[in-house]
Amino acid sequence: MSETPRQAPSSLQQFREFEYTRADFDRLRALSNKHSGILVPDDKFDMFYSRLTKRIRALRLNSFKEYCRLLEDESTQEFTNFINSITTNLTAFFREKHHFDYLQKTVIPELIEKNQTSRQIRAWSAGCSTGEEAYSIAMTLLENLPTGWTAKILATDIDTQVLDFAANGVYELSRVNSIPEERLKRWFKKGTGSQINKVKVKPELRQMITFKQLNLMQDWPIKTPFDFIFCRNVFIYFDRETKKTLAAKYSNLLTIGSCLFIGHSESLQQVTDRFELIGNTIYRKIG
């Protein structure tokens, strides 16, 4: 097998605004892994260039090597911009609908019976991206909880830009076209004037959710347990040891019988014995 080249082919390099080598890419993805735990595959070489060129221009640097040196200075504030630039945020309202069906038909009735004293439900959307998942959870809870009950949702992400977007709660009409008209009218306000092609989530939803930045590789300032956790399309970015650590920490924040929802391409098999699979990438805590 031939060895991976250490720099981009000259035929491509000559069209680049800044010199960018495989060594630069390796330094950058090593920094990403050290900071966030995310494993960056070889096929992200060009993506890193296209996304980070904007940062190099904004900082008026001359090369990717200079940018690497800047990031390696632990006092720099650029790391947030770096992580924001390279993270991919793909989400949608009620994505993986079977999870929300199970939440409605099974989890919420169980919690209504279990939490009669507090009449409160706490949930976590970990890796919330631009907020569609958190707002989908909020809609499902409000549509199915009895009068007098309250629900609180913590929504976290490492990317501060998507958190700002999520907290604002304004979406293009194309982002909500899969939501039935009745639900859309109940929970969203249509824009007017310059906002004619947009919608904004209503205050009842927004007030339920606390958006916070959280790096899953660092300490979690969370003590109170949750009734269920959504952590979808997050495990795929980590190695097995990191997955084991995350699964244990999630388990510590759930009571026996509570559910952890993960992404359709993810699995906790051979990762943890504290959860059992109950179907469709839904796990229940058993220990």
Rank of each mutant, 00 (worst) to 15 (best):
M1V: 13
L184E: 03
P9R: 14
A123H: 00
K114I: 01
D164T: 11
L90F: 14
A248V: 06
Y67D: 04
I108D: 01
G193M: 12
K212V: 08
I153N: 04
R69F: 06
P9F: 10
D73F: 07
K202P: 01
I256V: 12
L268N: 04
T192K: 15
N177A: 07
L12P: 03
Y67I: 10
I286R: 03
R27Y: 10
F18D: 08
L268M: 09
F211Q: 06
E66W: 08
N89F: 11
S251C: 15
F25D: 04
L216E: 04
T224P: 04
F235T: 08
Q270R: 11
G148W: 13
K243Y: 05
L277P: 07
K189C: 07
F25Q: 03
L173G: 08
L12D: 08
A123F: 05
K65H: 15
D43R: 13
L52V: 14
N215K: 09
C259H: 00
E78H: 12
G257H: 10
F25G: 01
I209E: 03
S32I: 03
E182T: 15
G169F: 02
Y237L: 09
T156V: 10
T53Q: 14
I196R: 06
K243C: 00
E96A: 07
A58V: 06
W149R: 02
N252D: 14
P41Q: 13
W124G: 00
T224H: 12
G148R: 10
F48V: 05
F211H: 00
Q213C: 05
Q77C: 09
Q116W: 02
N177C: 10
L70S: 06
T21E: 10
A138Q: 00
T76F: 13
V199E: 02
D157K: 06
S36Y: 07
V162G: 02
Y135N: 01
T156W: 06
T91P: 09
F100A: 05
R69E: 14
K34N: 13
T210M: 12
Q116K: 15
E113M: 12
T106E: 15
T4W: 07
C128E: 05
V107Y: 03
F18M: 13
Y102S: 09
S129F: 06
F188K: 02
E133D: 14
D159G: 14
L246H: 05
F230S: 01
E113L: 13
F82T: 10
A166E: 09
I256F: 11
S125P: 03
F275H: 01
K65N: 14
E133W: 10
Q218H: 15
D73G: 11
L163E: 05
W220K: 03
R55H: 10
K54Y: 00
D73Y: 09
F275P: 05
I262E: 05
T130G: 11
F211P: 01
T245G: 08
L103D: 06
D219W: 05
